Amino acid sequence: MDQPTDADAALARRLALGDTGALAEAFDRFAPTLTRYAWALADSKQDVEELVQDTMLTLWQKAASIDLPTGTLLPWLLVVCRNHARNQARRIAKNAGDELPPELAAPASEDDARERLRWVRDEIAALPEIDRKICELCLLQGHTYSEAATMLGLSVGAVTQRVSRSRARLRKAVTHDEH
């Protein structure tokens, strides 16, 4: 398991136990990324701050029941932030008598959902061939690292390292993070 996954799992356990220091640590770690993401979903500084605060509050309230299939907190936090943005946009639209912005509306069809996630497919397609195969096997088809390693003739450690690098690349693409 890679270090960010271990750190996220430990952080989630501490949050579930009610450790307020863990909440402060989570805020310090994830608030900058959530803020950048929230700016893509909201128009004002006040709305962005509200989205980040609501997301962190949800993390605190639901810590004991969080399921992290990828072992990392960031994807869960981004989904929660997007859900809060949708709710916020609905409230604002209802008060103004407007419709929900198209980027926050639920996809009308499976094809629409696929289209919205084209950038993910494009990022995966741009990976080196072996990394692309590993992503397809592990992240899309649900195979374990061990199964993928056997299928591709690699060690489990090599698969783990390549998945970690691919996730970092996708994380960088979604957050436009230079780190």
Results as ranks from 00 to 15, higher is better:
131 D>M: 03
119 W>C: 05
137 L>F: 13
117 L>H: 13
120 V>M: 06
142 G>R: 06
122 D>F: 03
137 L>I: 02
120 V>Y: 01
135 C>M: 12
137 L>C: 10
117 L>R: 05
131 D>Q: 14
119 W>Y: 00
139 L>E: 06
123 E>W: 07
131 D>Y: 04
136 E>P: 02
125 A>G: 00
138 C>A: 01
117 L>Y: 13
135 C>P: 08
128 P>A: 10
139 L>K: 00
116 R>N: 09
125 A>E: 15
111 D>R: 07
140 L>S: 09
138 C>L: 01
112 D>S: 12
114 R>H: 14
142 G>E: 05
132 R>T: 01
116 R>M: 08
125 A>I: 03
131 D>H: 14
111 D>P: 00
117 L>A: 15
125 A>Y: 04
113 A>I: 00
117 L>D: 07
136 E>D: 11
110 E>A: 14
120 V>A: 09
126 A>D: 07
130 I>P: 07
129 E>V: 08
120 V>D: 03
135 C>E: 10
124 I>M: 06
126 A>K: 08
126 A>T: 03
139 L>H: 03
127 L>H: 12
128 P>Y: 06
127 L>K: 00
122 D>R: 01
140 L>M: 11
119 W>I: 10
116 R>L: 13
113 A>D: 12
139 L>D: 09
115 E>H: 13
113 A>W: 09
140 L>C: 02
112 D>V: 02
141 Q>T: 07
130 I>W: 04
113 A>Y: 12
111 D>F: 11
130 I>D: 10
135 C>T: 07
133 K>G: 00
135 C>V: 11
123 E>D: 15
124 I>K: 07
124 I>W: 07
112 D>M: 02
118 R>N: 10
122 D>G: 03
127 L>T: 12
127 L>C: 13
129 E>T: 05
126 A>G: 03
134 I>K: 08
140 L>T: 13
142 G>V: 05
141 Q>P: 04
117 L>Q: 13
129 E>Q: 09
142 G>S: 06
127 L>W: 11
135 C>A: 04
126 A>R: 09
132 R>Y: 06
122 D>T: 07
117 L>N: 05
129 E>M: 02
137 L>G: 09
137 L>A: 14
124 I>Y: 00
126 A>E: 06
110 E>T: 14
122 D>V: 03
115 E>N: 09
137 L>E: 00
125 A>S: 15
137 L>D: 01
125 A>C: 02
127 L>N: 08
110 E>N: 09
114 R>F: 13
138 C>Y: 05
130 I>E: 06
122 D>E: 11
118 R>Q: 07
115 E>T: 09
129 E>A: 13
133 K>Y: 05
127 L>S: 10
118 R>V: 01
130 I>K: 13
121 R>L: 08
